[in-house]
């Protein structure tokens, strides 16, 4: 399953860097370009790369779709909780934490936490959607071929 040895090896070297880059974009989103959405998409691209290179079994091992579904709900709830935390100081979405010093990591109060919550939603949601569309699209495209394949149908049921 998956692509040739060269591609696999190169991916093994690169994948850590991709994830690091994504996390960097998420954490420093309030200081430069980037933020939760952009960083989350880069992280998702890392997962999609794993899936393309090593085959879908390996990628799903790393992140099962029901776990991803769970995570996306948690991320959304976390973002809402951050918004509601503003009520501590009286207003919805109020950034009540000390704003810190300019141009440092600790300089925007709650914004980095909101970015992290957004990135959790984006990673899990886009990855789930990608996996499901791949599964479902294959199933629809070659319906005759897969109709009698018990294992394949069972796999879809498990992942949905």
């Amino acid at each position: 399953m998956g692509m040739s040895l060269i591609v696999k090896k190169v991916t093994q070297f690169v994948i850590g860097l991709i994830f690091l880059y994504g996390i960097n974009i998420i954490l420093f989103g309030h200081l430069g370009v980037g933020g939760g959405f952009a960083g989350g998409v880069i992280l998702t691209c890392g997962f999609i790369l794993i899936m393309l290179v090593f085959g879908r079994e390996k990628a799903i091992q790393k992140m099962r779709t029901n776990v991803a579904h769970f995570l996306s709900c948690i991320g959304a709830l976390a973002f809402l909780a951050i918004a509601l935390l503003g009520y501590i100081d009286g207003t919805f979405f109020f950034n009540f934490i000390d704003h810190g010093k300019e141009f440092h990591l600790h300089s925007a109060g709650l914004i980095p936490f909101a970015d992290i919550a957004i990135s959790i939603i984006i990673v899990s949601a886009i990855f789930t959607i990608f996996v499901l569309l791949v599964f479902f699209g294959r199933f629809v495209g070659d319906a005759e071929e897969y109709e009698n394949d018990e294992e394949y149908v069972g796999n879809i049921d498990r992942n949905l």
Binding site: H69, F70, C73, I74, A76, L77, L80, A83, L84, Y87, G90, T91, F92, F93
Partner: peptide, 21 residues
Amino acid sequence: QQLYPLFVAIPLGVAFLILLF
């Protein structure tokens, strides 16, 4: 007056909360 944003926040929160069950 203070609770006005909850008209959006409550249904949004419930929508994501119940997916966990």
